[in-house]
């Protein structure tokens, strides 16, 4: 397998004694978009910060393209661009200067053409001479992305990149991230918008209370854990589900005008045909049927709940 980041048995205990990461092992593949999901305080930022050199690991190791993040920090870090979760910027600097500064910090010689391209890609070009404090929150977020891209990283960490970014720009940002991936950049992002992960990610990892509880190809994950539900809309409201249909564990909804049946797509028999026959036998008429696949969000919520 083609791992660009290998995290092995990584643990982190903060000075407070709180253990934010518990024996985490994870491999990020070259060229993929990996979405890290988890509730607030799960350890997503801690995991990213440790990999980038901002937080010291308590035990375990991380290598980036084969370079140990501690022994060989220069080689490891120069491959990584980081967009932090917090909007931290130098209020008094200009957009252009701060992005050029980032490039220099990562040891790259000045390249105004590249900086211009990055600023244009992020719709910040007309703000290049503005002081950062005059930017809006969403612009500052994009500025942080521009800083991270200024030194042409091979790996990009995006810690909640679209928090506070409007819908249009979010779509632009997704397009940008995809274009980066197509140019060979590996992307690790965290997000609380599950649709974002569903839309973007190749693989998904779920972290909860410092432990990775699942890493899975997105499509397989949705398939494997995916449940479907069938909603049957009735002609006439019923007051209770007849005894003869008990085996289907139907739920009566919307004032008795809808019956909801949940089934597993992996089962040999979905049971739909027999359910419909049983409905007819019980004398329940229906006018319409709908099926719905559960979203990543449902999967995520049930996973995290199970873990607690």
């Amino acid at each position: 397998m083609n791992a660009i980041i290998s995290i092995t048995n990584l643990s982190k205990s903060y000075a407070t004694g709180f253990q934010a990461l518990k024996d985490v092992s994870l491999e990020i593949r070259k060229g993929e978009i990996f979405a890290l999901l988890g509730p607030n305080g799960a350890g997503k930022t801690t995991l990213i910060s440790t990999t980038c050199g901002i937080v010291r690991p308590t035990s375990g190791s991380v290598t980036v393209d084969g370079h140990d993040i501690i022994k060989d920090y220069r080689a490891a870090r120069s491959l990584i661009g980081l967009v932090p979760q917090e909007l931290t910027t130098d209020a008094f600097e200009s957009v252009w200067n701060t992005v050029s500064f980032s490039r220099g910090l990562f040891g790259k010689s000045p390249n105004p053409a590249h900086i211009e391209k990055v600023l244009r890609d992020l719709s910040l070009w007309d703000k290049k001479d503005n002081r950062i404090m005059t930017l809006s929150g969403g612009m500052k977020r994009r500025l942080l992305i521009a800083k991270a891209l200024s030194h042409e990283p091979k790996i990009l960490f995006l810690d909640e990149p679209t928090a506070g970014v409007d819908v249009n720009l979010r779509r632009d940002m997704w397009a940008l991230v995809r274009a980066l991936r197509d140019s060979g950049v590996t992307i690790i992002l965290t997000t609380h918008y599950i649709d974002e992960a569903e839309e973007m990610a190749d693989r998904i990892g779920v972290i909860n209370q410092g432990e990775i509880i699942l890493v899975e190809n997105k499509v397989e994950l949705m398939h494997k854990l995916g449940r479907k539900q069938l909603t049957v809309q009735l002609h006439q409201a019923i007051e209770y589900v007849p005894e003869s249909l008990a085996a289907y564990r139907l739920e009566l909804m919307t004032d008795g005008t809808e019956l909801v049946y949940r089934y597993d797509t992996r089962a040999d028999q979905t049971g739909i045909a027999s359910l419909l026959a049983a409905l007819g036998k019980a004398g329940i008429d229906f006018k319409d049927l709908q099926t719905k696949q559960s979203s990543l969000e449902d999967i995520f919520v049930s996973l995290v709940r199970e873990g607690q």
């Binding site: 901002i54 080689a75 870090r77 120069s78 980081l82 932090p84 910027t89 910090l105």
Partner: peptide, 14 residues
Amino acid sequence: FTGTIYELLSAPVS
């Protein structure tokens, strides 16, 4: 104080 030190710490600088 502002938090921008994250960049310094994550950069390949000694």
